[in-house]
């Protein structure tokens, strides 16, 4: 059940700077750039890197360096995303955006990039870390984070939901549909698939 043969399931590749790009910004949802996120032989210094420390004590970034090799540290993911929106709003053509981290992080970054006018040709993503899914209940629109099982109970409407591989880039979430819609009460055992 882990490969449902659904084409919208995103595929990822290790990141290498696009030789056509003029400036390369890499955002990660941890304190460091994970080695497995980069293609062989690619050094993090090829990018301007934004990281998330997940703590309040972060070094100040007095000099706002915006060049390859510069590293800027944020307290949290929302902190980083808020700065990313502001940054992209004043960027010029030629920028490439890269993200490495969990899937919800990658696709939230994608949404920010797309709203700023970046096309898929100008963004690249590497999935590293947890496999846990953000899911979207197609019946009641509730979004749930960190789902690791094949079947989950919707926090919004209580429906037993089957977690599909059907992925919405717009919502940055996997679609989840009621599993006992035809035979109420017939719910298979949930399996731990996405930990």
């Amino acid at each position: 059940m882990s490969d449902q043969g659904i084409k919208s399931r995103p595929k990822y590749q290790p990141i290498a700077p696009d030789p056509q790009g003029r400036h390369h910004l890499l955002v990660v949802d941890g304190a460091h750039v994970p080695a497995e996120a980069l293609a062989e032989g690619v050094n993090p210094s090829a990018f301007e890197v934004w990281t998330v420390a997940h703590k309040s004590a972060v070094p100040g970034s007095a000099a706002m360096e915006e060049e390859a090799g510069a590293v800027r540290v944020f307290r949290s993911v929302p902190h980083l995303f808020s700065a990313l929106e502001e940054r992209l709003a004043r960027e010029t053509m030629g920028l490439r955006l890269y993200a490495a981290g969990t899937e919800p992080f990658l696709w939230d970054a994608y949404g920010i990039g797309a709203r700023a006018g970046l096309s898929q040709q100008e963004m690249a993503f590497a999935h590293v870390g947890a496999q846990a899914r953000r899911i979207f209940c197609v019946h009641c629109r509730t979004v749930m984070e960190g789902v690791t099982t094949s079947i989950a109970t919707c926090a919004g409407c209580g429906a037993p939901l089957f977690v599909r591989d059907h992925f919405s880039r717009r919502l940055a979430a996997f679609m989840a549909v009621q599993i006992d819609a035809e035979v109420p009460g017939e719910v298979p055992q949930a399996e731990e698939l996405y930990s």
Partner: peptide, 8 residues
């Protein structure tokens, strides 16, 4: 061309 905003 170098001063155009993203999404141009």
């Amino acid at each position: 061309l170098s001063r155009q905003p993203l999404g141009t």
